[in-house]
Design a protein around this nucleic acid. Structure first.
Lengths: 261, 261
DNA sequence: TTTAACATCTTGTCTGACAAATTTAGCGCA
DNA sequence: TGCGCTAAATTTGTCAGACAAGATGTTAAA
C-alpha cells in the first residue's frame, strides 16, 4: 500500500489543483528560471494523474505566463515569469468610476512627486507634447480623452518606476470606457476645458521646476476637481450607460464631448 | 471537394488559432454574455479539429476570463469579462523591492485614511486580531511576515474599495518573496520588532479613532521606516539573493528572522 | 400539482496511439 | 582526437475512443 505519488485531494477541479501545486513549486524555486521541468508523463506519475490533466495544468501556467513549451523539447519555466492581476470589468457606473479614481488619486499624486524629482529632459518634453496634443484634439472637436490619458501617462513614465505605469495603464483601460460615456455633455465642455488646461499647466510647471511637493499638490487638486466634475453629470451618465449596454460595436473616435479630466 | 469545416490555416499553434477565432467570435457578439456556446464536440466539428484542441482553446479563454465552464452543463461566455494586468517578476533585489514599496506607500497611506473613515466594527476587529497574530507568530519564533502582510491587508479591506486589496494583494506576492530573504538577519530582529509593533499600534489607534489624517500620517511613517529598515542590510540581502538563485528546494516555513515591516 | 426516478447530454478525466519537432547518440571520416 | 552527418530516442502536439461526474429535461407515480 505504498504511495509514491503526491495524492491529490479530490476537489472541484483536479487540473486546477495540479496547476496550483506546480505554480507553488515553481515560485518556491524547485525549478529555476529557464529550467526545464519534468516531462508531462513524469509529472503525471508524480501527481498520480493522466497526461491530459498535466497538459491542462501546464496550459494554465502557460497562459499565465509562468512557463513556455516547445514541441519536441519540453516545458520550461519562463525566463521572465509573470504574475497577473485579473479584474472583472464592472458595470460602468458612477460608483465604480469613483472607486477607480480613489485608487488613482494617491498613485498619480505620488507619480507627480517622483516625476518632479527624477524626470529626464526627454520625459519632460513628452509631457509638454502631450499637453499640446490635448489642445489640438479639443480644437479639432475631439473629446481629447485619449490625449488626456496620455498626458497623465507621460507623468507616470517620468516617475521612472515601471509599476506606476503598469497599474495606471491597467486602470486606464476601463476608465477610458467609463469616461467616454460622459463626453457628449456639450454644455459643460467650455468651462471644463479651461479649468483642465490650467490645472495641467500647474502640474507641468511644478514638475519642470523640480518642486516635488508643489507637483503632488497640483496633481491632488487636479484629481479632486476631476472627480467633482465627474459627479456633476451623474444622471446623464447613468442613463447613457444603460443605453450603451449590449451595443456590440462602439466606434471609438467620435468627436465632441466634455472631458471631466 | 466540399468542406463544411472552417479550415484552420496551419501555423505554429493550432489550439492558439482556434482560441483566437473563438475569442473573436465572442467579442463579435456571436454569443452574448452568459450565453452557452456550442459543445466541445460541435466546436470540434465546426473547426475540423479534435476535442483535445477545442478543450485547450477553451482552457485558454477560461484562463483569460472570457468563458467559464460547468461540468455537465457546458461552457458559457463570462457574465463579467475581465482584463488582466500581467507583470514580469523581476530579479529579487533591493532595487526592485524599493520600487514596489514606492508604489505601495501612497496606496497604503490612502487605504489607512479611508479605513479610518469607513471601517466597520468587524473590520476593525480583524485588524486587531491581525496584530495579535503577529505577536504570537513572533513569540513562536516565526518571522511573522505572513501575519504582517495580513495586518496590512486587513487595513486595505477596511478601506472598502476592492481595488486597493486587489493591487496590494498583487504586489504582496513579490514582497513576500523578497522579504523572506531578509528574515535571517537575527541581529536586528529585537530592535525591529519593537519599532514595528509601536508603529502598527499607532496606525490602529488612528483608524479606530476615525482620525483619517492621523491614520495616513502613521501609515506613512511606518512605511518610511520600513524602507529604512530594509535598506539597513542591503549587502546581506543581495548576497543571499545571489546565493538563492538556482537553489532547487527552499523550505517555505522556516523560523526566525528580522522582519523589516 | 408535486415529487421522485430515469434517460440524456456535457464537461472532466483516463488510456492509447501517432505526428512533428527537438535532442541525443552513434558512426564514419579526416 | 575532433568534427560533421545520420539515425534513434525523447518530448510536446494532436487525434480517437471510452468512461466518470454532474446537470438537465422528461416521465411516471403519489
Amino acid at each position: 500500500m505504498s504511495e509514491d505519488t503526491e495524492q491529490p485531494s479530490r476537489g472541484p477541479q483536479l487540473s486546477e489543483q495540479v496547476a496550483q501545486r506546480l505554480s507553488d513549486a515553481i515560485q518556491a524555486g524547485e525549478w529555476g528560471r529557464g529550467a526545464r521541468l519534468p516531462t508531462e508523463a513524469a509529472l503525471g506519475e508524480r501527481f498520480g494523474i493522466s497526461r491530459s490533466v498535466v497538459r491542462e495544468a501546464i496550459s494554465m501556467l502557460r497562459n499565465g505566463g509562468l512557463v513556455t513549451s516547445r514541441r519536441g523539447s519540453g516545458s520550461f519555466v519562463a525566463e521572465s515569469p509573470t504574475v497577473s492581476l485579473r479584474l472583472a470589468i464592472p458595470d460602468p457606473g458612477l460608483q465604480s468610476v469613483v472607486e477607480v479614481l480613489e485608487l488613482r488619486r494617491p498613485l498619480e499624486v505620488e507619480a507627480a512627486r517622483l516625476a518632479a524629482e527624477r524626470h529626464t529632459p526627454s520625459q519632460l518634453r513628452r509631457i509638454r507634447n502631450a499637453m499640446v496634443d490635448i489642445d489640438e484634439a479639443v480644437e479639432a472637436g475631439l473629446s481629447g480623452v485619449d490625449q488626456d490619458l496620455a498626458f497623465h501617462r507621460a507623468i507616470a513614465e517620468a516617475a521612472n518606476n515601471a509599476h506606476f505605469t503598469a497599474v495606471l495603464d491597467f486602470y486606464n483601460r476601463f476608465l477610458h470606457h467609463a469616461i467616454r460615456v460622459t463626453r457628449t455633455n456639450e454644455s459643460l465642455r467650455e468651462a471644463f476645458m479651461q479649468q483642465v488646461v490650467a490645472e495641467h499647466q500647474a502640474i507641468l510647471d511644478a514638475i519642470a521646476g523640480g518642486d516635488a511637493d508643489a507637483a503632488a499638490c497640483a496633481a491632488a487638486t487636479h484629481l479632486a476637481h476631476a472627480e467633482a466634475r465627474l459627479r456633476q453629470a451623474p444622471t446623464d451618465l447613468l442613463e447613457r450607460v444603460e443605453a450603451q449596454r449590449g451595443s456590440t460595436s462602439t466606434s471609438s473616435t467620435e468627436p465632441t464631448g466634455g472631458n471631466p479630466r
